[in-house]
Design a protein around this nucleic acid. Structure first.
Lengths: 212, 212
DNA sequence: GCCAAATTGTCAATGTTTTAACAAAACTTT
DNA sequence: AAAGTTTTGTTAAAACATTGACAATTTGGC
C-alpha cells in the first residue's frame, strides 16, 4: 500500500536499489543503514530514506533496513513476480540479443514469441523459441494473448506494427525502434530505449570532457 | 558559444530534437515555430525555446526556426562531426548488435575495433572488422589510440576491464554492462545503458496501468 | 534496566526544472 | 510604408526534486 504516489524519478531509481540490494544479499549482508547504502551508491542518505518512504516504512530506527526484506519489497513494488507475456517483434541482431541476454523471468515477464517479416529467418530457433513470420501474428495473439510487445524493428515499420499490435490487445511497449511511440498511445505504457539518442548524449559528454 | 551552461536534462533532450528536425528536413520543411514543433513532439513550446536558448538564439521573431540551420546547430552542439575512435569490448549478441546496427559515423564516432575474450569468436568478421582477442588490447591501444570503449560484457568482468582500459588511455565509456561505472571514475564520461533497469521500470508501468 | 549511540521517518529549506506571461523584434499583407 | 500578426528571447512564477535537520524510536552495551 503506497503512502503517496511515487514520482517517475523515484521509480526509475528503484531498479538500481534492487540491484545493489541483490549484491548485498549475495554477500550475506543482513542489515544496512541508509548511510552505508548511500556511500555505496553515490547518493545522499536522505534521498534513499525519502525514496523508500514513498512506499512505506521498511526500516527501523536504530537498526536500518533488513537487506532481504527490502530487496523483496522493492521487487514487489516493481511487480517482478508478474508473468506478463511478452513477444519480440524483429529478430535481427538486436532482437536476438534481447531474446538471449535478458532475464525476463526475473524481471516480471515471460517471453512467449519472436516474430520477423523476413522468410529467411523464420523457423530459426532463438533461446528455445522459433522465429515466426509476422503473418501469423494475429492468430498467435488470439490464441496466446500476449500482454506486451518488444519492438526491435526499423523506424519506418514501427507506426504500422504498433497500430496492429494495439488492435490485437497489446497493453504495453518496450520500444527499441528509432521512433517515438507514446505520442499516439497516451494511455498505453511505453518504455523507450533510444540507443542512438544515448550515443549522441555520450558524444556530447566526451566532447565536453575533452575540451577541459 | 554557449550562453549559460546547459543542464543534463536539457542535453538529454537534444538528440530527440535532432531526430525530429531530421525528419522535418527529409520532408522538405524549411521553417518551424516552437509551437508547431511542440505539438509534434508533445512538449511545451516554452520548454523548446528555453532549451534552445541555452546555446544561443537560433530563431527569429515572427518567423520561427530554420529547420536545416537548427538541425545543423544541434549537431554541432552534440559534437556529431567528431570522429572519436571507439572500440567494443564483448562480441556476444549485444556487442554484435551494437556493432552492426549503430550508425557510429553519423553520431560522432568511428568504430575501429572489436574485442572478445573467447578464442572461439576471434577472427570472426563483424561489419568489416575482425573480432580480436583481448590479449591484444594493449598493443592495439598503443598503436591506434582509441578514445572511448563500449562495454558489452558481463557484470563481473566490468570493473577489471574498465580499470585496464583507463590505464590504456580510454577517455569515456558507453556502458551496457550490468555494473555501475562512474562511481569509481568520476572524471571520465560514462553513459550507462542498463537494459535490465529499463525492463524493470517497464514492468512497474505495465503493472500500474493494469491496476486501473 | 538504564544510558549512550545509532538511525529512521518526516518536516522544512534549498535547489532545479518546467511552465506561463509578455515586451521586443521580425515578418506579412495591404 | 504602416498596421496587424506572428513568434521569439527572457523574465517571473509555479511545480517538482533533493538535501538538511531533528524529534522519536530502537538497539546494544554495561
Amino acid at each position: 500500500m503506497p503512502k503517496h504516489d511515487a514520482s517517475m524519478s523515484v521509480v526509475k531509481r528503484l531498479p538500481r536499489y534492487y540491484r545493489f540490494l541483490s549484491d548485498l544479499k549475495d554477500n550475506n549482508i543482513v542489515r544496512i543503514s541508509s548511510r552505508e547504502l548511500s556511500d555505496k551508491m553515490g547518493l545522499t542518505a536522505s534521498q534513499i530514506r525519502q525514496d523508500l518512504n514513498c512506499f512505506g516504512g521498511f526500516g527501523q530506527q536504530g537498526y536500518g533496513y533488513n537487506v532481504a526484506q527490502l530487496h523483496n519489497e522493492i521487487g514487489m513494488i516493481l511487480g517482478l513476480s508478474s508473468k506478463f507475456k511478452a513477444i519480440i517483434i524483429g529478430a535481427g541482431n538486436l532482437g536476438k540479443a534481447i531474446a538471449t541476454q535478458m532475464s525476463f523471468e526475473k524481471r516480471g515477464f515471460s517471453l512467449i514469441g519472436i516474430f520477423d517479416n523476413k522468410e529467411s529467418v523464420t523457423g530459426q530457433m532463438i533461446n528455445g523459441l522459433p522465429v515466426r513470420h509476422v503473418s501469423g501474428l494475429e492468430e498467435f495473439c488470439s490464441e496466446n494473448r500476449p500482454d506486451v510487445a518488444i519492438l526491435c524493428i526499423p523506424r519506418d515499420a514501427a507506426p504500422k506494427v504498433a497500430e496492429q499490435l494495439v488492435g490485437l490487445g497489446i497493453k504495453g511497449f518496450w520500444n527499441f525502434s528509432h521512433y517515438d511511440l507514446g505520442l499516439k498511445y497516451k494511455d498505453i505504457p511505453v518504455e523507450n530505449v533510444h540507443l542512438s539518442d544515448s550515443l549522441m548524449t555520450f558524444c556530447y559528454k566526451v566532447k565536453e570532457a575533452s575540451e577541459k
